[in-house]
Design a protein around this nucleic acid. Structure first.
Lengths: 125, 125, 125, 125
DNA sequence: GTGGTCTAGACCACA
DNA sequence: GTGGTCTAGACCACA
């Protein structure tokens, strides 16, 4: 379910975090649902258990999942958390756009890119 | 001329690269113009000469500057480079926006962020 | 596996680059295969890790290998790279021959040299 | 008469040496003819006098020119020297071809390049 | 352990 | 002085 891009510079544990958040935002993982155990997830996607552990802990710290000792990890029911995630994404966009602007990228080109991305999405739905 | 953000996670040599690219895109550094020597730049911004070397060599590999042993480093006359840099920036924006969209960030919020960034810029001019 | 000529004027990191390219072109290193770690390679050939780093990063920039922090460095699966390397070598030959011709070296002598080089090679196989 | 390629990696004084050798081999500079003074040559081609000095000394060491204190530098009448120059050129060709061969460049492609170079030359004559 | 960044400092060829 | 190479060694994030 989660694809790791080994060539990418974004750390594997980051990709894991974003992957799970995405699956939740798509409703593929619903509140209360149990996640694969650290070991299962690790062997599934061919990753060191430490890496999965790190991702789960970050997700728990952000309130997206919760862990029950001896039982496993579950998608958190908490709804209001989502806004925090969106804000993080928004900040990343802001930072990248600011850098591009400083390089001289005109606003029109940024707008065109944004349009393209959201057009792709509405088509694949 | 170039400000280093020591708190930032982006490596110093990367900030240097971006700084010089930016100065060139603003026309503050024009083709043929000589850059400060590796050592001068290093002591200017309080960094080890090796770090500046790394940045200069990366810029040379990208065709943005060229270096002549014994003479110095110069802004490359190559014109077509600029568009390449803009395309790189555009790609980064596209990638970040796509990720944000996958997280569920609505288009309106992305647009608002873009507007804000470019509004900031026009005000500071 | 890689021999460094300490007398040579071509920098050690350059020799490393060429050595790895050569091993790949011989099929001794196949796509996906893991290279010795920076530190292992360094101690193998008696060189500072920084020097190996420089070579590996140059190879990555040329798309010949790719590195994953925490995992290691691997021969890139990219196929089309090989032809690029041959073209670079071809260009170097062309440039050197052109210079020799300008010095007045007759074609027959160039041909004889080429014959000799390839004869050596077929004998050592 | 002599063009310096500042982008090239071959040192300026080397380019100077090769330039004069070439002019001699073309008969543009004949035995006995006086060369421009170090200073004149330096300002002609926009180079540091030290650099011209170095080139002249190397040429004298190789017997291609000779200097008379207080009078200037002259093209040497010595004919047999030329063979040495050809041998140097030949060695450079050999080295480059050997490297290309090690990269996997097939002999046919080397031969084709050599043919092309000498074909160009016979056409421009 | 693995790649990546950075400092401090030496040494070289070249201009 | 100027770029380029290299060593020795520290420190970091990541796996």
């Amino acid at each position: 379910m989660i694809q790791i891009d080994w060539q990418s510079r974004t750390p594997v544990y980051e990709q894991l975090i974003q992957g799970i958040v995405r699956l939740k935002s798509f409703g593929i993982l619903s509140p209360g649902e149990q996640l694969p155990s650290v070991r299962a997830m690790a062997s599934d996607i061919g990753v060191n258990p430490n890496t999965v552990q790190k991702a789960y802990q970050a997700l728990e710290a952000r309130g997206i999942i919760y862990s029950v000792t001896g039982k496993g990890s579950f998608i958190s029911p908490n709804e209001s958390i989502d806004e925090e995630i969106l804000k993080e994404a928004e900040n990343r966009v802001g930072k990248t756009v600011r850098e591009a602007a400083q390089m001289g990228l005109p606003k029109e080109r940024v707008v065109r890119v944004v349009d393209t991305v959201y057009a792709e999405r509405s088509m694949s739905e």
